[in-house]
Nucleic acid binder design. Structure first.
Lengths: 282, 282
DNA sequence: CAGTGGTCTAGACCACTGG
DNA sequence: CAGTGGTCTAGACCACTGC
């Protein structure tokens, strides 16, 4: 049936409780709203669990549940949306597969967060060649600059802004056990990160995305990276304490919040003498 | 209950039909074999669908269903394993999520293959900077060498062999629209690829992994990559038609068949002047 | 021990594909 | 139109966690 959640009921515009969903009657898979095809041969409607997923995403985006918090139990959500537990379950499964929610048996389902020890540096795929130890948390961070500028075209494009829109631009160096390894230039849309200063960043001890979460309520959910091999320019080389003949990885990343909204663009230069970028293909 | 599939019945060693599974009785979730905990506090048993998944993997590995073929319908498998359709479904879902099986509504479930147009070059993450066109299929391949040697330690380690075990070693160049872009050194365990020659490779038009499938029955399922930035040595530079000052991406890949058995190790040098390695992070 | 997620079943019906 | 995967439900029970 691919029942559609009632989005517009002629008489009732919106119910009081937010994100409320009505299905006309359970059991009946041959009554109520069923129209599966909208128009002639359009891609057909979404299944119920997809709609639930969207509603959950909306709640997340609107901050109804903050990163790190529990969301209601599957049974509660099933009641709220008037669907079966299994349907809610499938929606949550999807979100959990995308690392947006985290399930913990016997405890509940949580909004993923960059604050957790376990998932810290989720987006940093750099590993020491000597596999064994994963440094990361012990990184020394040095903020080089933090200024407000106007978006150049490639930055604007990546952030979905128009050229010259105000952006924050910062540069930092990460060193692992004393070795400068990563130089990053980071651009953030000013409208979402107003008030960010080098001091506040320096005072925060933890991954940057955790800082963004707690200080600006911006939760990064997904990212795209484009990797090239480059030679650093003299300034970059100096900051990384290498010669300009030492090739480095250029990792351009666009990071997204809920709704695939780009919220950060960064270019990282990774020194890959004792490290490598690790990737798993399926 | 996390029912265990009967693996050893005192009286019957193995049933005739391969991969046959018995569950003592449906319905009864409080009868039959239930022991959920093996010993004191061990990691607890696998759920049924995991066991089904293993059995499916075994069948795949043993070649019961070849790449590109349909596997039995969910109902048939449910009958065969004496579990409900839902349980088979969940097992297949897992395998489909790992690109090992492909579901096609209204048609059936297929063994994934590198031969299909749609998934060709699944493991090649190099993209032209000008997003639009994805060349790939139009690549010109040139085999430089193809010889039998003995595995050096790093190759042996990657392939799970012991040093000096016989391996096939080949080198090739891929060019996209006339531009040499990728130089690859590829090592294969001789025991699985005996008879591979440069001629046979040249005669085959299509991705290498498709060739491995049809010629040697080796299906690559997963791969790990380690990426660094390097300067090419003079020989490499010549083959890529670049100067030795041009940094390139070094992509070391270990590819695995079913069971996480490594079957290939390769080092690729990617010219990233007009291309980039594309990665999505979740 | 109560509550949560995890597994399993059974059955109904929908959506899609191919002959 | 038959057969396949896809969705949805309802209910039972298991496994795990925390109090």
């Amino acid at each position: 049936m691919s029942a559609q959640i009632k989005t517009s009921t002629p008489t009732i515009e919106t119910t009081d409780s937010p994100s409320e969903v009505k299905k006309d009657s359970k059991h009946s898979q041959s009554e109520g709203i069923q129209s599966t095809k909208t128009l002639a041969n359009l891609p057909s409607f979404s299944p119920l669990y997809q709609q639930i997923k969207e509603l959950l995403l909306q709640s997340l985006q609107q901050g109804e549940w903050q990163p790190g918090e529990v969301i209601p139990s599957e049974m509660d959500l099933a009641d709220r949306f008037q669907v079966s537990q299994g349907t809610v379950r499938k929606a949550i499964d999807d979100l959990a597969a995308n690392n947006i929610l985290i399930r913990r048996q016997g405890v509940g389902t949580f909004v993923a967060t960059h604050l957790e020890e376990r998932v810290q540096y989720r987006f940093l795929k750099l590993m020491p060649d000597s596999e064994d130890p994963l440094n990361k948390a012990s990184a020394e961070r040095r903020i080089i600059t933090c200024k407000q500028t106007n978006a150049k075209s490639h930055v604007a494009k990546a952030l979905g802004l128009t050229e010259n829109d105000p952006v924050l631009c910062l540069r930092r160096v990460l060193a692992f056990s004393g070795v400068a390894t990563i130089l990053e230039d980071i651009w953030l849309p000013e409208h979402s990160f107003a008030g960010l200063t080098a001091e506040r960043l320096r005072d925060y001890h933890g991954p940057m995305y955790a800082f963004f979460e707690s200080a600006f309520g911006v939760k990064m959910v997904k990212a795209d990276e484009r990797i090239k091999a480059l030679l650093p320019d003299p300034v970059q080389a100096k900051l990384l304490e290498i010669s300009i003949d030492t090739p480095v990885l250029s990792v351009e990343r666009t990071a997204f919040t809920y709704n695939n909204t780009p919220m950060e663009f960064r270019q990282g230069l990774y020194l890959t003498i004792d490290c490598h970028y690790r990737n798993e293909l399926n």
